[in-house]
């Protein structure tokens, strides 16, 4: 009996260890299976094309589009300098920087616009009784049921010279000549704000949904005015939602293509249009690829800096 127990004990321990290893292997396998589809898609449709763009940006443009397999960093030089056709001397050219600047300006203004318009909407929805919220969220996502292109075309009909707005203003006798609204920065901005507003509302709503509204009473009770409650309580607590909304609006707005193309009439280039142009009639694929990568790098750096700043601010409280 005693001997049998002695033999049984190491056996049980070994079996336990074997079982533990099986469990660990299963866990690793499960994780791999769960991640595999996403990794596959990111790899095939994200990293692979990006590598192609990276390679192309260091090649020479083909005469009829495409690339010549000759190494060159001309595409990056071209971004800042103009090469003289005759003597190959470089002179500084800010044309593309200006397009970048305009794009950032428009994208940041869009972000601020959607924030100012979107925050009150998100707050309004979060303050509804729970059974009413779904209706309002449904209303916010309704535009997604229709293609962005169609929606942008319909905006075009509204703001053009013979459009709804001008007709109404002229009917009312406020103006005699149609206001030129189409193909202006204002039209592009309005289109961008309209297109990206839901991307601001939804993350802010998500952070407000969990918001404990008794904190507002606590703030008022502790002598804070309504403005102070907004500044010291609502804003800091919903900051993650605000940051997420800003990122979700700023980045796609920077690369926007359809809206500036239709409402800006292609006259006012944004980065997206510039890049598209290089792969189309511009026939300068390396330059298009370089512009796309520069944009990506700038966005990445800006994002990292802002996240770092947000994190250190958060840490300051604790």
């Amino acid at each position: 009996m005693g001997a049998a127990a002695h033999i049984a004990r190491p056996d049980a321990a070994t079996r336990l260890r074997a079982a533990q290893e099986v469990r660990a292997r299963q866990r690793r396998r499960t994780r791999l299976f769960l991640l595999a589809p996403a990794l596959g898609i990111i790899g095939i449709f994200g990293l692979f094309p990006l590598s192609i763009a990276l390679v192309y940006s260091f090649l020479e443009p083909g005469t009829y589009g495409g690339v010549e397999w000759v190494f060159s960093y001309d595409a990056y030089v071209q971004f800042l300098f103009e090469r003289d056709i005759f003597d190959d001397t470089l002179s500084f050219n800010s044309a593309y920087l200006q397009i970048f600047g305009r794009s950032f300006g428009l994208a940041i203004t869009t972000m601020i616009g959607t924030l100012i318009l979107g925050f009150p909407v998100a707050y309004f929805i979060a303050a509804r009784p729970p059974e009413q919220r779904n209706f309002w969220l449904f209303a916010i996502t309704l535009p997604f049921w229709t293609n962005l292109l169609i929606r942008t075309y319909s905006m075009l009909l509204i703001v053009r010279d013979e459009g709804f707005v001008n007709l109404m203003l002229m009917k009312l006798g406020l103006i005699s000549e149609p206001l030129e609204m189409l193909y202006t920065d204002g039209a592009v901005l309005a289109g961008l704000v309209y297109s990206y507003l839901p991307f601001m509302i939804l993350p802010i709503y998500a952070s407000l949904e969990k918001f404990d509204f008794s904190l507002l009473e606590a703030g008022h009770d502790l002598y804070a005015t309504r403005t102070q409650v907004f500044r010291h309580i609502i804003i800091p607590i919903t900051r993650p939602g605000i940051v997420a909304g800003c990122v979700l609006v700023l980045i796609p707005a920077l690369g926007a293509y359809i809206t500036p193309e239709l409402l800006g009439g292609g006259k006012k280039l944004m980065i997206g249009n510039l890049i598209a142009l290089q792969f189309g009639s511009g026939r300068n694929w390396p330059f298009g690829a370089a512009a796309a990568l520069i944009l990506m790098a700038v966005v990445l750096i800006a994002l990292l800096v802002s996240l770092r700043a947000g994190a250190s601010k958060e840490g300051g409280h604790g």
Binding site: D212, S214, G219, D221, Y223, A224, T225, H232, H317
Partner: peptide, 28 residues
Amino acid sequence: PNNRPVNTVFQNYALFPHMSVARNVGFG
């Protein structure tokens, strides 16, 4: 409420989650 020399202890405490203990206490 912010003009009354009256303070409340709430049933669910309603502490400000983004502030330290000290800042909560000092908020008023």
